[in-house]
Design a binder for these strands. Structure first.
Length: 221
DNA sequence: GAATAGATTGTCT
DNA sequence: GACAATCTATTCT
């Protein structure tokens, strides 16, 4: 009997209270976990995007827009912002910064780590590299939906949680690129606010060689 | 492998 | 009524 894999310590509120890019970058390599009754599902984050309302025209909180949907972004950091895109797909974000700053990090892709077969089954038996390689795909794999809206990811016992990188995992390369699907956002569309591990086969999109050369940097594991 | 079209529904005007 | 921080299948090379 193999001992269950133990996740790293849960990330604390102060981790999320920094600038949104200072959170989005080190989240690459961190672990997103969900507990469903007895089952544990988890994956290593390999792709994130930072959204910095109100000035960021790509953010739902652009221009200080404050509605029932965006409300949680105006609250304290470390809470889940979940929304629907294109009718059928859910997307999972973490609120960052200080209360009143409507910032959030979109988690776009995971490397399945725990509960892989359960997640794969939910995704129609697709190859593992497609199990959580996109915002909608990872929500489907983890069973994240509207009921996760506003959950406090830092609270002890919360079914959704974020954890520090596994201690024995090798350091990951983190590359910044423009964000996906925000062409309507003017100059904000080209800003390097998407953070990926370019070596991962689990990304929603591969990273081009050009952006790799200009923006890559090493991060402590 | 790359490009394209269609699906489908919550949210906001 | 229009649109969207996407996904999938299909149709090309």
């Amino acid at each position: 009997m193999v001992a269950p894999l133990s996740l790293g310590p849960r990330l604390t509120r102060s981790f999320f209270e920094r600038d949104v890019c200072e959170v989005a970058s080190p989240l690459v390599g961190a672990v997103l976990a969900r507990r469903e009754g007895g089952a544990l599902l988890a994956g290593v984050i390999v792709e994130t995007e930072a959204y910095r309302g109100p000035e960021d025209l790509a953010a739902h909180s652009a221009g200080g827009r404050r509605t029932a949907r965006t409300e949680v972004m105006y609250g304290p950091a470390g809470h889940a912002y979940v929304f629907v895109v294109y009718g059928r797909n859910w997307a999972f974000n973490v609120v960052t910064g200080r209360p009143g700053e409507p910032h959030a990090v979109l988690v776009r892709a995971l490397e399945p780590l725990v509960g892989v077969e359960l997640m794969r089954g939910r995704r129609g038996g697709v190859p593992e590299r497609l199990v959580a390689s996109g915002p909608g795909r990872l929500c489907q794999a983890l069973g994240v939906g509207r009921e996760s809206y506003g959950h406090d990811l830092c609270a002890e016992g919360s079914p959704l949680s974020l954890h520090a990188p596994l201690t024995h995992a090798p350091a990951r390369l983190v590359v910044a690129t423009p964000r996906i699907g925000v062409d309507y956002a003017g100059e904000w569309a080209s800003r390097p606010m998407r953070f990926v591990d370019p070596a991962s086969p689990h990304l929603s999109r591969r990273v081009g060689a050009a952006s790799r050369a200009t923006t890559e940097r090493r991060r402590q594991g």
